[in-house]
């Protein structure tokens, strides 16, 4: 479903070249549920943006759902669903159902399929009682459920979510998680999500990809991730250890040149 090989993206910041992502290679098979972790500024969002065709990679080869995202952006858009936790894809001033109708027309979903799909999504995401409410009046939890529904109305085989549970309360978070788990298990939809909430990872992801300093720092199962640190540790501890191990040593006066993060591929 996703094939990335030697993927890299540089940005010019005030004359100097910054490598946001470098030499990133990984594949995601159809039906997988993958969590993408990494500290702030590690290159997760840049990676997601390259996968979705928003940013063109500077180096490497990339295929998502059978397409080169940069060359076939609109063809790819029909085959993937994208949810941004911190951006809205809905029309702020219009009722939620109007945004859905617009998605139907933009993605060319026929009326019957749309009706059936919307009914299903309304039921599992519990949308029915605010379908007619303007999006600007929805709570964050309601809106996020709306965003997820909008991303799935065209029934994409791949769903990519960038921090979908950010800012949600415990109940809303559980609702979104349960839904994503069921979507993957029952419909076989491939899911890739980025998050800082390790609860998302423990509950949902069979596989974890950790990006740090723009490189792949770990790729394996949650159990393997935990086993990286000796003793009985929580996943939080294991991840914290991985993040910290790649930082410059605070005891040295002058920060060392950025060391290579430990690269563990399981």
């Amino acid at each position: 479903m996703i094939e990335a090989e030697g993927l890299g993206r540089t940005f010019k910041v005030r004359g100097s070249l910054v490598h946001a992502v470098r030499d990133l290679s990984f594949t995601v098979e159809a039906g997988e549920f993958v969590g993408c972790l990494g500290p702030n500024g590690a290159g997760k969002s840049t990676t997601i943006k390259m996968l979705t065709g928003i940013l063109a990679p500077t180096t490497g080869r990339l295929r998502v759902a059978g397409f080169d995202p940069t060359r076939r952006r609109t063809a790819l858009a029909r085959r993937i669903g994208v949810v941004f936790g911190q951006r809205t894809t809905l029309w702020w001033d219009l009722p939620l159902k109007d945004s859905f109708e617009l998605v139907r027309l933009l993605y060319k979903v026929d009326r019957v399929t749309f009706r059936r799909r919307l009914d299903e999504l309304c039921e599992v995401l519990d949308l029915s009682h605010f379908l007619r409410t303007p999006v600007r009046q929805l709570s964050l939890g309601q809106r996020m459920r709306g965003e997820v529904a909008a991303a799935l109305l065209h029934d994409p085989p791949l769903l990519i979510l960038d921090e979908p549970t950010i800012g949600l309360d415990v109940v809303s978070k559980a609702g979104v998680r349960d839904f994503l788990g069921a979507l993957n298990a029952e419909r076989g939809t491939t899911v890739l999500l980025t998050t800082h909430d390790l609860g998302d990872v423990e509950r949902l992801c069979r596989r974890v990809v950790l990006i740090d300093h723009g490189r792949l720092a770990f790729d394996g199962t949650v159990t393997q991730l935990r086993a990286l640190v000796p003793g009985e540790v929580t996943i939080e501890d294991a991840v914290a250890r991985l993040y910290l191990s790649s930082r410059p040593d605070p005891r040295t006066r002058h920060p060392r040149p950025a060391p290579d993060p430990p690269s563990v591929t399981a």
Binding site: K49, T52, I54, T74, A77, V82, Q86, T88, T89
Partner: peptide, 13 residues
């Protein structure tokens, strides 16, 4: 504002 990202994920010009 980042709204361009949202436009780029839609199947439209």
């Amino acid at each position: 504002a980042g709204t361009l990202d949202v436009m780029l994920i839609r199947p439209a010009s």
